[in-house]
Design a protein around this nucleic acid. Structure first.
Lengths: 115, 115
DNA sequence: TCGACCTTGACAGAACTATGGTAAGGTTTG
DNA sequence: CAAACCTTACCATAGTTCTGTCAAGGTCGA
C-alpha cells in the first residue's frame, strides 16, 4: 500500500501541509509515522481529509465541531451527559406557549410602523 | 406554573443575565416571552441552564460544542454526513501500524539523552 | 408617579481558532 | 554531497466566542 508525505497528501486533498499538521494536532486526522518521524498518509487518511473538507464546504462546519463529535465517540461518559441534556432540550416546534410571543411580535411590528 | 425574569433565572442558575441573553441568541436555551416582550424562564429552562453549566464545569465543553450537537439534531442531512465521516475515522486504539512510530519515539528519546 | 426592573444595541477585551510564515536542524535520494 | 524534502517550535494575524458594561428607552408594582 502506497503512503504519502505531508506535501503529497496536501496536493491530493486540497489542504496545505501546514493545515495537515494542524489537523493532526487537533486529533482529527493522525497519520502513521515512518521510523524517522516522517508523516505517512495512507489512502484512508486521504479519504478522511477529503471528507473533512467536504463537510466544511457543504455545511459550514467548523473543525472544532467535528473534533467534538470525535470526542463524544471517545468519552462515553461525556456522550451520556450531553445526550441526557439534549433529551431535556426538546425542539420547541410551535408549541402552545407561543401565544403571547406572537402577540409581542405583532406589537413590535405595530411600533415599527409607528416609528 | 411560576416563571422567572432574566435576573431571577440568573440568580437561580449561576449564569449572568448577560449570558442568558447570549445563550438565547445561540439557540441553546430560548425562554418564552410575556406579551410585552419580557423573557419568562420556566422550571424546565432553569434545568437546562443548570445542566449546561454542569457540562461546562465537568467536561470543559464549549457552548459551541453543545450548539453543534443541537444543530445535528435539527439537520438530519448534516448528521448523516458527519456520521458517515466518523464511520471512516476509526479510533486508532493501539493498532499494528504503531510499530515504527514506537521506534521513532525511542530514537527521539535517545537523542534527548544525547543532547 | 417613581424606582427597579426589562428590552435591544453597541463597544470592548481576553482567549481561542484557523491559517500563514520563518528558522534551525534532520532525512532521502539522485 | 547537495537539493529537496521533512521535523518541531515559534511569531503573526484575522476572525470568533464569551463576557462585561453602558446607553436609550419601555414596563411594572406600590
Amino acid at each position: 500500500m502506497p503512503t504519502f508525505t505531508v506535501s503529497q497528501a496536501a496536493e491530493r486533498t486540497g489542504w496545505s501541509p501546514r493545515m495537515l499538521r494542524y489537523l493532526e494536532s487537533t486529533g482529527l486526522v493522525i497519520p502513521a509515522r515512518s521510523a524517522s518521524g516522517y508523516r505517512r498518509y495512507g489512502e484512508h487518511d486521504l479519504e478522511l481529509l477529503r471528507g473533512l473538507a467536504e463537510l466544511r464546504r457543504r455545511f459550514d462546519v467548523e473543525l472544532d465541531d467535528v473534533a467534538f463529535v470525535v470526542r463524544l465517540r471517545r468519552e462515553p461518559e461525556l456522550r451520556d451527559a450531553v445526550e441526557s441534556w439534549l433529551a431535556g432540550a426538546t425542539v420547541p416546534a410551535a408549541g402552545a406557549a407561543e401565544a403571547d410571543w406572537i402577540a409581542w411580535e405583532q406589537r413590535k411590528h405595530e411600533q415599527l410602523l409607528v416609528a
